[in-house]
Amino acid sequence: MDTQTYPLNALTQRPMAMYHSWDSQNAWLRQIHTHNYLFVNPRTAEANGFGDGDWIWIESPINKVRCMARFSEAVEPGTVWTWNAIGKAAGSWGLSPKANESQKGFLLNHVISEELPPCEAGEHMSNSDPVTGQAAWFDVRVRIYPAEAGEPEVTSPQFKPQKRVPGQDPKRGKWQAFVAGAFRKKAKIQE
């Protein structure tokens, strides 16, 4: 692993107010974590030429992701991190294709490979612990650099919006005032 070109470690952490990808569909919880930033130590950011809130690329040997950076002094300079599984594919989880989760949120998994590059141990060795086969998520090494000025202010990669499936509720309206006892009628949820 070429740690000169890819000097930084990239991690994800699970937020206390969301559990993996289960809670972007939750109207209350997604107001707390709507989209995710990449948290970077200010000195690391300055060394890579971008400011707080700028659009940047995270690149690993197999892929790259575009997202927004957020300065944080609460992270070790050699590490960048984001919240786990806040970013979603457009249109999934009952959300509108324009929801923050797909337009401003991103998924770090794209840059983490499930297999090691071919090595003497084998052609397709799993990117895991050799003793237990545990996925070595946090071994991923990345480099970060600012996105060009002209690039669209949307995270990448983007996917064709996922369609709603039969049996799913109709698209919810602009307002939702939940009062137990009267909600399902108002939100046109069939039982």
Partner: peptide, 23 residues
């Protein structure tokens, strides 16, 4: 959760499943 169905409710959400949800 308590107050949206309680005396001081409802606590309305706007664009709950769209861009920039607020409430």
């Amino acid at each position: 959760e308590w107050n949206t169905s309680g005396w001081a409710g409802p606590l309305t959400d706007q664009r709950p499943y769209d861009a920039d949800p607020t409430g």
